[in-house]
């Protein structure tokens, strides 16, 4: 159990380090950085490399945004395997719906509960 925590910390931290380097050295905006990481996750999934990373690092691989690209591609690949051409389009959100639906629902609830404040501390 301790080992899983350490693996999650190290792998998750390293993915964030790649993001920080893209922002600081590559001079990219956060939106560009996150888009690149998502695309990377999808490509790794295509090569079948992301699922082993999840087995290895647990939340260290499922929590970073790369996991989002992986689940999208994973869903599309699984459906494509079952249904061929049609599956490429239909399967995409099968695995990944929870992140987007949670963001929409909590975004809406957040808008109901809070208002933006210009606080600094």
């Amino acid at each position: 159990m301790i080992a899983s925590f350490i693996m999650a910390f190290v792998v998750g931290g390293l993915i964030c380090v790649i993001g920080q380097l893209l922002m600081d050295v590559g001079k990219l905006t956060p939106a560009h950085t996150l888009s690149i990481l998502v695309v990377t996750g999808a490509i790794l999934s295509g090569f079948g490399l992301y699922e082993p990373l999840i087995d290895f690092a647990g939340a260290g691989a499922t929590i970073p945004i790369t996991s989002f690209g992986n689940s999208l591609a994973h869903g599309a690949l699984a459906e494509a395997e079952k249904h061929g051409w049609i599956g490429v389009l239909t399967g995409m959100f099968e695995v990944t719906s929870s992140g987007i639906s949670a963001a929409i629902v909590f975004g809406f609830i957040g808008a109901l509960l809070f208002r933006s404040k210009g606080n600094i501390d």
Partner: peptide, 24 residues
């Protein structure tokens, strides 16, 4: 934290939720 808080899914959540709150 920079990318440390932007790259995890919480950062995705923050981007969605902050926009929702802002445009209320």
């Amino acid at each position: 934290g920079g990318a440390g808080s932007a790259v995890p899914v919480t950062g995705f959540g923050n981007a969605v939720i902050s926009a929702a709150i802002e445009h209320k």
